[in-house]
């Protein structure tokens, strides 16, 4: 078996930097998509995420009456840490920082831990709106989690392995999983937007509940959570590029360029579609997720399983 772990001492810091960069790029794209160029200069929009981040860094932290400080702190730290954990299984040139026999489950587990982190984020301040947002997130979780798991396992079935580097290797030569797993790809992106409670799935932090889980989170705490959300979504876009679009695979250009282009394309698709949809209420999304997305992903994985048995994926 070829070595699949990136053993250099620089591997960890480099992947952390890459993950944060992915988050920043996503945040800038999001700002561009959201703010129509009415009035302000385009350059303002481009630096908006950085400027907002600096403001949060300098801002004084607000507090509520009798908050659960311990659980708040755990939640605020967990969101960015989990985002970086999910980046640990990103495959680069046939290697990743963490390479286990179940990388796909690793990503899934990092994302599932958000259930706890976001609920705690809403619980911590001891205030109504964050708690409403927290319960909205769990309701949304019940909707997106199962279709997302089926989408992820479809990738594993197609590759015949749960190791991220094997998944990329199985798509070499243009045999990208997107061609045979379009439904899983779409559901993966929907799940990514939903677990980052972003765009149309932003109800847990919606303006109708005064900011929901983020209502009472300010200063550095808010910065950490927002960086974590953006990083998670950026890493998910790169993960989608690796799992469904073959990662570095492509003719002519060097591998890393292909990887970056695909990641940017997935981000553009995510942001472009996501910002065109209104916010979906979790109970409505649950209906759609269980009646449409779940059967679609089950059929998708069944089709891929039949293709595997037929020797389609070599």
């Amino acid at each position: 078996m070829p070595e699949t772990v990136w053993t250099s001492p620089w591997a960890g810091p480099v992947v952390v930097a890459v993950a944060l960069l992915l988050g920043l790029v996503l945040a800038v794209m999001d700002a561009l998509a959201r703010r129509a160029p009415a009035g302000g200069r385009r350059a303002d929009v481009l630096v908006a995420p950085v400027r907002d981040g600096a403001r949060m860094l300098l801002e004084r932290r607000g507090t509520t009456i009798a908050p659960d400080r311990l659980l708040s702190t755990v939640a605020v730290l967990a969101v960015p840490v989990l985002a970086l954990m999910s980046a640990a299984v990103l495959p680069f040139g046939g290697r990743s920082v963490v390479s286990t026999s179940a990388d796909l489950v690793w990503f899934n587990a990092a994302e599932a831990l958000l259930w706890a982190a976001v609920w705690l984020l809403g619980w911590g301040p001891n205030a109504v709106h964050p708690l409403v947002g927290a319960y909205r997130f769990l309701a949304q979780g019940l909707a997106y989690e199962l279709p997302l798991m089926f989408a992820i396992i479809t990738v594993g079935v197609g590759a015949g392995s749960l190791r991220a580097t094997d998944v990329v290797a199985a798509q070499a030569g243009g045999a990208w999983f997107l061609w045979t797993m379009p439904a899983a790809f779409v559901v993966f992106l929907i799940g990514a937007a939903a677990f980052a409670f972003w765009g149309p799935f932003g109800a847990p932090a919606g303006t109708d509940v005064a900011g929901g889980v983020l209502a009472e989170t300010s200063g550095v705490d808010r910065l950490l959570v927002q960086v974590g959300r953006a990083t998670f979504l950026g890493v998910a876009a790169a993960t989608a590029a690796a799992w469904f679009l073959g990662g570095e695979d492509g003719p002519g250009l060097p591998g890393p360029v292909w990887y970056a282009l695909k990641t940017l394309a997935v981000m553009a698709l995510l942001v472009g579609m996501g910002r065109r949809w209104p916010v979906v209420r979790p109970e409505r999304f649950a209906d759609v997720a269980w009646v449409v997305l779940l059967p679609a992903t089950v059929v998708q994985s069944a089709v891929v399983a039949v293709l595997v048995l037929g020797g389609f994926y070599r």
């Binding site: 179940a102 599932a112 769990l138």
Partner: peptide, 21 residues
């Protein structure tokens, strides 16, 4: 035991979140 360990983490997290509700 990567798969078992990750599955334990994944399932217990979701289970505890629902249990909290």
């Amino acid at each position: 035991l990567a798969y078992l360990g990750l599955l334990t983490i994944l399932m217990m997290t979701i289970e505890m979140a629902i249990m909290a509700v």
